[in-house]
Each structure stands twice: as structure tokens, then as C-alpha cells.
């Protein structure tokens, strides 16, 4: 996965970038299965590797597929990223170890979900139950976000009357 990301950063052909992004999503989905997040992995595989790739390719078809050589030296962004990374590493030193049952994440609300979900909702898949029932408002808002994004894309890409003289006028003004 790390290798894919490095090649992703270096590669300048956008087609390669898009396909690698798909590969990367699929690897991420595999990692998520290993981490027991089957629902998430399924979504990631279908959304990240499927739909995103198709959309990126569609956009690529409309644009140029070759990235120009960067003019500036990448040292400043590299330094900023490295600094951010160092800060984050410093931050993790205080976090609980991997798979620690006493970590706060496992002790707070989750036992209630896990113990009562079958009695209260009759749905064995806890993820579905929490998604649709306990956190129904979240999901409603989230569906609305997807809806709004759809409307936004329609508003942006709806075929509009093209002024035929627009490009020429611009040239004439120069």
C-alpha cells in the first residue's frame, strides 16, 4: 500500500494516477476486512475502487491527461508535510496501544450497543442498527449531504447555452 502511494505521488501521467488510486482503494478495503470492519470494507471496495475510478476517468476524459512539470521546487511542501508528520508521531505517543481492551473507545457507549442491540431492535448486525436507529439523525443528515452533492453536480454540469464568441472575445481583448 505504501509503495502504491509513493508511486502515486511520483507519477505524472494522470491515467496512471487514477488507476493506482483504484488499486489503493482496493488494498485499503482488504486492510479494513483484516480490521473486522466488513461493512466499511464493502463500501470502500464498491465506492472507492468502483464509482470513484469511473468518475475520475470520466473527468479525465474531459481534461488533459498529462500533468505538467512543476515549476517550483517541492522542498517547502515536503518540509511542511514532514513537520506535520513529526507532530502527529509525537501525538501518538500518548495514545493507547493497538487492540487494548481497556482503551476509552471500548469502554464508553459501545458495551450498551453490543449488549442491548438484539433485545431492542432485533437486528444482529450492530453496524446497521446503530446506523439506522440509534444514530438515525446522523444518517438522515448524511443522506441529505449526498442529495445536496447530487444537486450541486447537476447545477454545475447541466448543459448551458455556450456563448460561441466567448473565447474569441477573450483573445481580442488581449
Amino acid at each position: 500500500m505504501a509503495l502504491t502511494v509513493i508511486v502515486l505521488t511520483r507519477s505524472r501521467n494522470l491515467f496512471t494516477v487514477v488507476v493506482l488510486a483504484g488499486v489503493y482503494s482496493f488494498l485499503m478495503a482488504t486492510a479494513l476486512v483484516a480490521l473486522d470492519a466488513v461493512d466499511v470494507a464493502m463500501t470502500e471496495a464498491s465506492v472507492g475502487a468502483g464509482i470513484s475510478t469511473v468518475l475520475l476517468l470520466g473527468a479525465l476524459y474531459l481534461c488533459k491527461s498529462e500533468e505538467t512539470k512543476p515549476v517550483r521546487k517541492p522542498w517547502l511542501p515536503l518540509a511542511v508535510s514532514a513537520a506535520a508528520g513529526a507532530l502527529l508521531v509525537f501525538g501518538t505517543l500518548g495514545l493507547p496501544a493497538f487492540s487494548d481492551p481497556a482503551a476509552p473507545i471500548h469502554t464508553h457507549v459501545v458495551p450498551r450497543y453490543l449488549n442491548d442491540v438484539l433485545r431492542e431492535t432485533g437486528v444482529p448486525n450492530v453496524v446497521t442498527a446503530v446506523l439506522a436507529s440509534y444514530r438515525g439523525y446522523d444518517t438522515l443528515g448524511e443522506t441529505t449531504v449526498v442529495f445536496t452533492a447530487g444537486i450541486g453536480v447537476i447545477a454545475l454540469l447541466r448543459r448551458r447555452r455556450k456563448q460561441p464568441g466567448a473565447a474569441n472575445k477573450q483573445d481580442a481583448a488581449k
Binding site: 468518475l55 431492535t121 437486528v123 439506522a132 444518517t139 443522506t143 442529495f147 447530487g150 453536480v153
Partner: peptide, 27 residues
């Protein structure tokens, strides 16, 4: 609860598939 979850999921599925398809059509 079961019934509510069922219908909510139907709503989510309809919206998500509609939006994805619409976006694809637009592009």
C-alpha cells in the same frame, strides 16, 4: 425497530444510487 430500519435503508439506497447514476450521466 426492524420495520423502521428497513424503510430507512430503502430510502438511503434509493438516494445513493440515484445520485451516483445522475453524476455519472452528467459526466
Amino acid at each position: 425497530q426492524h420495520r423502521g430500519i428497513f424503510w430507512v435503508e430503502v430510502g438511503v439506497a434509493v438516494t445513493v444510487s440515484g445520485v451516483m447514476l445522475k453524476i455519472f450521466y452528467m459526466f
